[in-house]
Nucleic acid binder design. Structure first.
Lengths: 267, 267
DNA sequence: ACCTGAACACCGTTCAAGT
DNA sequence: ACCTGAACACCGTTCAAGT
């Protein structure tokens, strides 16, 4: 929502994963895909849906060491972290879970749905500032949110290409997006400038975190420190990579904040 | 270089495609991959390399309607535009060229190399301003370059995920990067702020163009206008999507320029 | 010099079937 | 309710061989 990149999805983005809180959903045998909003009610199909045996909250301690959507999502995130998006496959994940690939399709309609779940989990890691605190400086809150987003992008490099692939309307993504809007609203910019300012700031953080994560990953794969890698590709040494990067990030964020203040004063 | 997104490459980024101007390169039977810079001189292998029969400039009109790296690259770009990155395969491309997939490997070592070539071609479409013109306002030149980058990102949505995948040191990419640096240098910012300012501006444009391209693509796939799509997903109508977007882009760019001026005055 | 056929080790997903 | 085996239609890439 805030920024994105493309991995060229095969089918138009849908929102099906989020149709029901977290209960595993049947795929429906024929996968009738329509873009009409609300074309299938939560459990309207002809098949006998699960009777929700453990009461309204389906994840007590009742999960009998089985799969479950939560466990599948957790292991997906771990696998994506360690092996990367390119090597992530349903078969590989299933093997990790000690099960065949086809079992996964009971909990998830497609691989894309699974990735949406993992992505939303990752967004849950971004700490959001308390927007009801009227004494807090919006600049500090903006810096906190930007830093948090950057950190997550670097910690989970696979999220960058996914951010643009889906609509990102999962619960945790929504919390993040709302926080972004909330912080920018506190700047005192005129309403017409809000979305532009959101773009300016968070597209920047997205791009910055994306290269940074990529760089870190490349170094790890090459078995080389960031400074060593830099020395090899750029030649000149001098400062440490992390120091240069932190300086650039801070400078750019200060630039954006100064820009916001200038625009606010302009109207 | 200026910004990137990740499609999770399988192997560490190399620079092999650019080792020789544009002559097709043999793969080398065993593909000895080392990261040492300059570990293989242009033509030092044991295999008998092509004798460059048509003189130093290999592409006169001597291409006998065969493949050739240029034609392969051109068709790749066209295919990527029409069918997207996900559906782009060596087999599909070969079919388009009326040849088997394996033929391509005579001209290109890997699919990644091919994508690097296509990406560089796309960067060649960005018009760069005349940086030697001292009378020109850097703000105008910045706006021109930003608009050009945005346009290319939207016209070729597949480049977004590739920008981060490779080093982008092809000839056309290099021209673009140099122009970016040149424009920012003209702002009068102190040297330490230059890279940060480049980040702020071009990561923003990258992110902005990426969502925009994605949105356009999604609408096209759904066979629906942008405004119709917006109405369906957001509900409220009012302004046209293109108008809102242009307003946001302009506002954000103005914000960034104001930010640059503020930072310049600060030192 | 250029191109191919056959093969290897993978994919995501469906379907009918098991318990 | 949950899981599987077999199958379909794909991948990128290698290798030995053709002309």
């Amino acid at each position: 929502m805030v920024s994105e990149a493309d991995g060229a999805p095969e089918r138009p983005a849908r929102t099906s994963v989020w149709r029901q809180g977290k209960s595993p959903g049947r795929g429906g045998r024929k996968s009738e895909r329509r873009d009409q909003p609300e074309d299938r009610s939560p459990r309207a199909a002809e098949s006998p849906d699960p009777p929700e045996s453990a009461g309204p909250d389906s994840n007590g301690s009742a999960e009998p060491a089985g799969l479950g959507r939560d466990r599948i999502t957790d292991v997906s995130v771990r696998l994506l972290d360690t092996e990367g998006l390119a090597k992530f496959s349903m078969r590989r994940l299933a093997a990790e879970l000690g099960v065949t690939a086809m079992s996964l399709y009971w909990y998830v309609d497609t691989k894309d749905d699974l990735l949406e779940l993992a992505l939303d989990d990752a967004f849950g890691e971004v700490r959001v500032p308390d927007l009801t605190d009227e004494d807090a400086d919006w600049r500090d809150q903006l810096r906190e949110l930007a830093a948090g987003y950057r950190t997550v992008l670097v910690r989970h490099p696979w999220i960058s290409p996914l951010v643009g692939r889906y609509l990102n309307i999962g619960p945790r993504s929504t919390v993040f997006s709302s926080a972004v809007q909330g912080v920018i609203r506190r700047t005192g910019l005129a309403p017409l400038g809000l979305t532009g300012a959101i773009s300016a700031v968070f597209q920047f953080v997205y791009g910055f975190g994306t290269i940074e994560g990529h760089y870190v990953q490349r170094c790890a794969e090459a078995g080389v420190s960031q400074d060593e890698y830099y020395r090899r590709t750029r030649g000149t040494a001098g400062d440490t990579v992390e120091a240069m990067r932190q300086r650039d990030f801070t400078f750019a964020l200060d630039l954006l904040i100064a820009g916001i203040e200038a625009m606010r004063a302009r109207e």
